[in-house]
């Protein structure tokens, strides 16, 4: 087996082991933390597809995370009060079945990503970063001031949506759902990045001129990657909404976009399990530093800084380097 694969498996196994261990020890909240890591990791896996493999630095993925969350919240709240979501052009009723909600969440995000991507991909570099940010901000301000679904107060839906055969309110069973989807998304990413499409995408990132010369049209490839990436992040948003039984415009905020990006970079850009490792470490730090000091965010900032400056490949890059050194040394 190659070393990357081992590292990826170890990261995923660790996450599952923490959740199972905590479950056995009766630490319900630690299971919830592991669930949060799986969900935010999934959001990062989505961004990584665009950012890591396609070189598309999106500073607006909170838009898709929030759309996934809001679709879930809207379906669940309509299921509770029995009103249809839409009557025109067709009647759309609420639902509290996760299996029905997820495709809707991903579809909504795909449409948004198609529009945002088509416009943003006309630019590149810093402009792309800022344009994606601007689109997310636009949606954020809309969500705050649109009263229909609670505006800034957000939307509570009291009970988690249901999944056939499982009790979603039980922390470990909900973890199983999230970890299962995370595993699927990782598998999907692994397959896609090795496919012809994935190779084309990576070629456009490494050298646009050369990839054009061999007949790859960069924009459609990038747009496809951007949309797929948004769909995965939206799925994470849907799971996050169910984790909290609540959605709010803060899911759209630029802090959220920044955090998702931090997960990716912290773990290691373009590494399959990088975002998972990044999210897990971020949550661990947040949890450990919180009780140490009211000013824990400063400590967190210093640690992030140290990683960017001294470990440019992220945590996974650092680990691989250390492994290589022990082998040779």
């Amino acid at each position: 087996m190659n070393r990357d694969l081992i590292v990826n498996l170890v990261i995923f196994a660790l996450l599952v082991a923490v959740a199972l261990g905590a479950h056995v020890a009766g630490q319900g909240f630690t299971v919830t933390l592991a669930t949060k890591a799986a969900i935010l990791g999934l959001a990062g896996v989505g961004l990584n597809l665009a950012l890591g493999y396609g070189g598309l630095v999106s500073f607006g993925h909170a838009a898709f995370f929030g759309i996934g969350g809001y679709v879930t919240g809207i379906f669940a709240s309509h299921a509770a009060n029995g009103d249809p979501i839409l009557t025109l052009p067709f009647t759309l009723m609420g639902s509290n079945e996760m299996l029905g909600i997820w495709p809707m969440a991903m579809l909504a995000a795909a449409l948004a990503a198609l529009l945002i991507g088509a416009l943003s991909l006309r630019t590149s570099g810093v402009y792309f970063i800022m344009v994606t940010l601007a689109f997310a901000q636009m949606i954020y301000y809309f969500a705050i001031s649109w009263p229909r679904y609670g505006g800034e107060d957000g939307l509570s839906f009291y009970v988690r949506n249901s999944f056939p055969g499982l009790n979603t309110f039980d922390p470990i069973q909900y973890f199983a759902i999230c970890a299962g989807l995370l595993a699927l998304a990782l598998l999907f990413t692994a397959v896609v990045t090795q496919s012809r499409f994935g190779l084309a995408l990576q070629a456009t990132r490494q050298n646009e001129q050369r990839s054009t010369a061999v007949g790859i049209r960069a924009t459609p490839v990038r747009l496809t990657a951007f949309v797929l990436s948004a769909m995965i992040t939206a799925l994470a948003g849907a799971l996050y909404a169910d984790l909290n039984r609540f959605v709010s415009p803060s899911m759209f905020s630029w802090h959220m976009s920044g955090e998702i990006m931090v997960f990716v970079i912290l773990g290691g850009v373009g590494r399959l399990c990088g975002p998972v490792a990044g999210a897990a470490v971020f949550i661990l730090l947040e949890h450990l530093l919180g009780p140490v000091s009211d000013h824990w965010q400063a400590l967190l900032g210093l640690m992030l800084l140290a990683i960017v400056l001294f470990a440019p490949g992220g945590l996974i890059g650092l680990t691989l380097k250390a492994l290589r050194r022990t082998e040779h040394g």
């Binding site: 931090v262 965010q297 900032g301 960017v308």
Partner: peptide, 17 residues
């Protein structure tokens, strides 16, 4: 630009707190 974004994002946390 990616590393610059992350590093200066971290600086915001440090400066604010």
């Amino acid at each position: 630009h990616l590393d610059q974004v992350l590093a200066t994002f971290a600086l915001i946390l440090v400066f604010s707190e």
